[in-house]
């Protein structure tokens, strides 16, 4: 949880950087999430006022998009592609194994706060599935051995 004393100046900085941008709400929400790891509830009234929206409208936008989180994620975010081309390469079976290994389901975070697991629908690596992304880094032809090697090295 960011200190609310730190929060406001940082959010204001982001809002200033986007002044004059047409349709700035998504870029602002991305920037806030990049800064804090999620979009803190306290940031929303500031953003809404800046964009001349009601808080409910800003909240409606925030919750429409799968990417934005309203709570912090684990230290690492693992996204596994659930879409068709990866399914054709056995993604479903692999995902069951991975969920069992991590002891969590989709959108869950491991008890030690290390990994949050998210589904994703296509990473554009569809000729090299099953595909994944770990903290923004792409991984192709994922299998349990590769998973163990990648996840084993994470703090």
């Amino acid at each position: 949880m960011p200190d609310s004393a730190d929060l406001e100046p940082r959010v204001r900085e982001i809002l200033d950087a986007h002044s004059g941008v047409e349709g700035a709400l998504l870029p602002i929400l991305h920037a806030v999430q990049d800064a804090f790891g999620y979009v803190p509830e306290e940031a929303l009234p500031l953003i809404a006022a800046d964009q001349t929206l009601s808080k409910a409208e800003a909240y409606g936008v925030l919750t429409f998009y799968h990417d934005f989180r309203t709570r912090p994620a684990g230290r690492h975010v693992l996204k596994l592609c659930r879409a068709e081309a990866c399914k054709a390469m056995g993604a479903d079976r692999l995902h069951t194994q991975i969920r069992t290994k991590l002891g969590i389901d989709w959108h869950g975070t491991t008890a030690d706060g290390r990994i949050t697991l998210e589904p994703v629908f296509c990473l554009g690596l569809c000729a090299n599935g099953p595909s994944a992304m770990i903290d923004g880094r792409v991984v192709g032809r994922l299998d349990t051995a590769k998973f163990d090697a990648i996840v084993g090295g994470l703090e």
Binding site: G23, L26, Q51, G60, F64, Y65, D67
Partner: peptide, 25 residues
């Protein structure tokens, strides 16, 4: 501009709403 993980925003009018900072309806 970068979307935020909504497939429907590939539909052109939803995309325009999203570009304008709205829900991608």
């Amino acid at each position: 501009r970068i979307g935020a993980g909504a497939y429907v925003c590939g539909e052109e009018t939803a995309l325009l709403n999203s570009l304008e900072g709205k829900r991608g309806v």
